[in-house]
Design a binder for these strands. Sequence first.
DNA 1: ACACATGCTCAAATCGTTTTGCTACACCCA
DNA 2: TGGGTGTAGCAAAACGATTTGAGCATGTGT
Lengths: 346, 346
Amino acid sequence: MASTDGRQLSGPAPDGRVTITQVAALAGVSPTTVSHVLSGKRIVAHSTRGAVHEAIRTLGYRPNNVARSLRTRRSQMVAVVIPDITNTFYSVLTRGLADTVDEAGYGTYVCNTDGSFDREAKFLEDILDRGADGVVLATVDEASEGALNAAGMGVPVVCVGGALDHPRIDVVAADDEVGSYAVTKRLLDRGVRRVAMIEGPTATGANRIAGFQRAMDDSGREVDPALMVPGDWTRHGGYTAMRALLAGPTRRRPDAVFCANDLMAIGALDALREVGLEVPREVAVAGFDDVDAATIVSPALTTAFNPAYDTGVNAGRLLISRLNGQYDGGGRTIVLPCPLVVRDSA
Amino acid sequence: MASTDGRQLSGPAPDGRVTITQVAALAGVSPTTVSHVLSGKRIVAHSTRGAVHEAIRTLGYRPNNVARSLRTRRSQMVAVVIPDITNTFYSVLTRGLADTVDEAGYGTYVCNTDGSFDREAKFLEDILDRGADGVVLATVDEASEGALNAAGMGVPVVCVGGALDHPRIDVVAADDEVGSYAVTKRLLDRGVRRVAMIEGPTATGANRIAGFQRAMDDSGREVDPALMVPGDWTRHGGYTAMRALLAGPTRRRPDAVFCANDLMAIGALDALREVGLEVPREVAVAGFDDVDAATIVSPALTTAFNPAYDTGVNAGRLLISRLNGQYDGGGRTIVLPCPLVVRDSA
DNA sequence: ACACATGCTCAAATCGTTTTGCTACACCCA
DNA sequence: TGGGTGTAGCAAAACGATTTGAGCATGTGT
């Protein structure tokens, strides 16, 4: 089956790879011409073009992208820098990005920073050295120097999640504030009396807290500082926080709790089940993100949908629009809605 | 803060990028020498080396990897071709791979095939064109011509999951058969009478079925064909299959069911809850994979752990060992154990 | 003094493309 | 005949590194 390996057509083919020169030789033209029929940048006579295509086919020629990149300064590859691909939010985001840029002929290079600033910097450097054409970055830090650096060097950067303060960096973020507002409002509409919140780390979770606050304000409630407890985004953190909320005298217990993400909400449900409180009758629970697990836990979680895939798609579009020269202005910002998803827990 | 941009030291610096020639000029040596101090391939006088390093530092030189790749025919990048990064198994596997190869200085390039044979072929071609140094492939098809092609061209390929029949392709797989055996045995040890299995598609799930069969044989049971129902790996498929199992006359219902993966087991639990059968008292349920959701569902799922991360790590090691020339022989096979994880559902 | 290492450096070729001029030929019109 | 106007194709110079053979000092043993 394998093509008999005994080309004596042209000189330089020590390894398996066919070069443009060999194609040119077989077609009886110059490499220039082959390049032109491939790129279409200049017109080539119909007959010549045929001969070239024929040669390409019989030789099984595939252009060497590395050489091409060197010459054109284009790698046709974008990089995505995220804390952890294992986290569903980021894997879905990455998928959205990959699907989008793939359509435009770009590949996707992935880096996991584990939230470490050093790793982030290291990877951004690596990415630039590799000549990636664009970067989407879920940054650890507000002022990622690596990113600014990249943007400074003319490599488009789009930041997902938090904003990055640079005049030419695009941002796409979910509307956490409004989403949290909606979820909180849903809680309040149940006619509950004491509503608590399990927060995320304030650095990244500020908007979810803000939405909660605004909903409380709008309905004329005051937030009881004792009912605002910190969490760490994890299931176990949610569990601990809920236990803390339940620790006080029964009178002061919440009858509704908004958790800044689903994982913590699931932890909260663990705690409530353990104590024997019925959800949502005795305590209503809501989360944020709408992860898969939200429909697996019982009762199924009321939550706000976090548009991970769309975030990736939009990041991809923003990047592409700069890469193909359609846009060249200052940083744009896209915020995506987080619609309320009502299920059984609230 | 930014370095004042007004180099008139040397000629070719139209864009921001510093080249090895500029470094050489500033250090008063030839590019050759700079290259040698960087690679250490030939000795350079101590003083010269100092000057070069100094020049590198003041210019902020970073070697252009594309140019380097062209010359050395090494991209320092491996590709991973999987059905879907969104699937936890593959994202965890990818993470294991990325962590492993990163240590050896390799980056990771990700391709999602969605299980489409055409996309797989297209991506493998793309990968070769990009000059990836190695490929790990969770192949759709037993005889992926793209992979064989790659292997034929001297690019190391390691296949995860199913085996690929090629003398030089390494394989790393989980021991599904033994894992399934253990899970089934656990079910049998409960003293159940009628045990069913919800299968995966036979193409990829054969070993899990085999393990089930062997466990049944070993305990002197006969498998009732009516209790072997096909599934499709999805939660909904598991639900449907379970409903089918419950459809018959009560006498013929199973009192234990082994689901070929956790997702289907969760679907089965959905069905059982709906019908009001208590798990595990009336029907014991077990799954396979040990996904996160296995501890979220209630009762928590008894299952076999599928070592996704380790699979990635091992795939990475096999690749690296070939890339650095430590190994150059025929295809190796690594099979990883899938330990039983006992929880509440069986 | 000769041969022979040894240490250090450089010029030039190479990797496989793309991109510029530039040439050559043909045709048409004045 | 001369000048324009296209069409097609090529040679050669990039792109930014690595690698190789050779050169030029020194030192060293005889």
